[in-house]
Design a protein around this nucleic acid. Structure first.
Lengths: 312, 312
DNA sequence: GGACGCTTGTCAAGGGTCTGTTCAAAAGCT
DNA sequence: AGCTTTTGAACAGACCCTTGACAAGCGTCC
């Protein structure tokens, strides 16, 4: 009966009773960790809100998990921030078709993939790779196809089955082109997509082109926590880290981690999500052109004498 | 989602309790091998992240596998392949030379993958595939490794980077083995995982084994809506549809769709999620053994299918 | 075979840190 | 009045730090 739900504000005794933490401790947590932010009554009494109460409960949870008081408080406070950022990201979508002979092949590939015809698609790719360089096929067929697939997907004119089938098949072909890309003597690049990003085919293309340019590639692929990426970059003493995403939102909220990463190893952002309008750590490079071109234009692997061995 | 892994930092006592390693040893591992990279509190206490915790678990795994502490730490750290430039066989391939058993090769593969050593892993796989049949390698090396990886993942003793790296590399190898699996004259099987299921490597193994047994494989892969699967099965006049999932929950709630599917085309459920305790449409087949064995035991590709209704 | 050295888990001493708790005096609330 | 609250200071004990050393196990070298 002694409750005062008027404003939902509690004095320290009541809060103490509710959460089972002595008033002394509550004051200590406030003083030492800033866990609680009570307003004061006219006479100076602390008045706690429901937010304070739940903050205490979170603190208790963390303590139960074994965290120290300081860490538990930090964690309990950290859960308070809520972040939301959403921006519509329209961007250029101009399908370019250069080599004329390539256009028909590209059409044939798209058709075979749409029809879930694996043998036909493989055959088209085989012929492409025997008639053109890997770079050309990747830049002028595979990448345009991937982009077109993405657009068709966005407007619902492709089925899940078609998308899955095409992705799986292309992934397989790319994987075979990627064979041994960690081998060699060139500088090391570590490639990944940020958390939430599931499309890594373009990144694979980039890795293949990089490798054919003399780099060693370490590939972590889609949906990789930055913490992991940082560790891997350090452990493998990477000379470059490339993060790719299809939309700028994937990079949002990572500013701090990106800065940390960029301070450790040269960093480049790629993919349609790499735009100039975002806050970038100094020294970060934006790769906005197609993956093959960007890979060719990266600072050449000037390392020692025996690297000039670009594989054919 | 808690974006920061550094949210719950542990002091040494709690970490020691969690992983079952004395605080003395933890400090020794840090001092001697740099295994741990704790930040420090204002007063100088070590504060460990979850990454540190899982690094310790990896260390324990490697110790259990018989590595010395120094090597286990090196492996747990993700390898640095310092002298790899000249000595083509890094530490990963050392263990292979002596006894040529499958078990040793499997261990070497696991080690190479743990160390993110792509060339070493590819080399181990190359030798395996030249010394044994595809079926043997898949059944006795790849599948056990995938299972072990899953278990280690569940208990946090493998990093995201390691999991991604291993998955990507194995997916690439499997894709090359899958080349042309849609080609031929055998009966057609359509393979997919239900919505939400992202692990499709085992299903790829199954597809490869099926194909080598005379089947044509249409592959839709992970996270496929049943509606799409049904359409595809009809469009390609499939003789069999295989749905694979790692947990029974993935099949839950699909009962109606599964019945519809089973009434159209012979249906089989596979993976660790295919258990007898669930409600099954009549005629549905459960594939509970390993993928290779199940593929070999499927009714042979006698094109005159529709009479031999598979029974349990 | 024995001296030597390396690796690795343990331990101890001396001292600092963290955190719940207590004390005391002054003041608010009903 | 009688209860609660506030502030500042001070503790005690658990917890942790660094340095240094030690011993068992194992391989190497003479």
């Amino acid at each position: 009966m002694g409750t005062e739900p008027g404003d939902g504000l509690l004095r320290i005794g009541e809060l103490s009773r509710r959460v089972g933490v002595s008033d002394h401790v509550l004051r200590a947590w406030e003083r030492r960790y800033g866990l609680l932010k009570p307003v004061r009554s006219a006479g100076g009494f602390r008045l706690y809100s429901e937010a304070d109460e739940s903050r205490v409960r979170r603190m208790q949870d963390h303590l139960a998990r074994g965290l120290s008081a300081a860490e538990a408080a930090r964690a309990a406070l950290g859960a308070d921030r809520a972040g939301a950022a959403s921006t519509a990201g329209g961007s250029a979508s101009v399908a370019v078709e250069r080599h004329e002979g390539l256009a028909d092949r590209a059409g044939a590939l798209a058709l075979a993939l749409d029809e879930l015809d694996e043998p036909a698609a493989q055959a088209v790719l085989d012929r492409l790779l025997s008639d053109f360089t890997v770079e050309t096929v990747l830049r002028d067929v595979v990448m345009p196809y991937l982009q077109e697939l993405g657009e068709r997907w966005a407007r619902g004119s492709v089925t899940v089955a078609q998308e899955h089938f095409a992705s799986n098949l292309l992934r397989g072909r790319l994987a075979s082109l990627a064979r041994g890309w960690g081998h060699g003597h060139g500088p090391r690049a570590v490639l990944a997509c940020p958390p939430g990003e599931r499309h890594d085919l373009g990144l694979m293309v980039f890795g293949i082109a990089l490798n054919r340019n003399g780099w060693r590639v370490g590939y972590l692929g889609a949906d990789t926590p930055l913490e992991e990426l940082i560790n891997t970059a350090v452990d493998t003493s990477a000379d470059l880290v490339v993060l790719a995403a299809t939309t700028p939102e994937r990079f949002a909220g990572l500013t701090e981690d990106l800065s940390r990463l960029a301070s450790i190893v040269p960093l480049a952002l790629a993919g349609a999500g790499a735009v100039h309008t975002m806050a970038l750590p100094v020294g970060t490079r934006l790769l906005t052109a197609d993956p093959v071109t960007e890979a060719e234009q990266l600072p050449p692997p000037t390392r020692s004498s025996h690297d000039a061995r670009a594989r054919q």
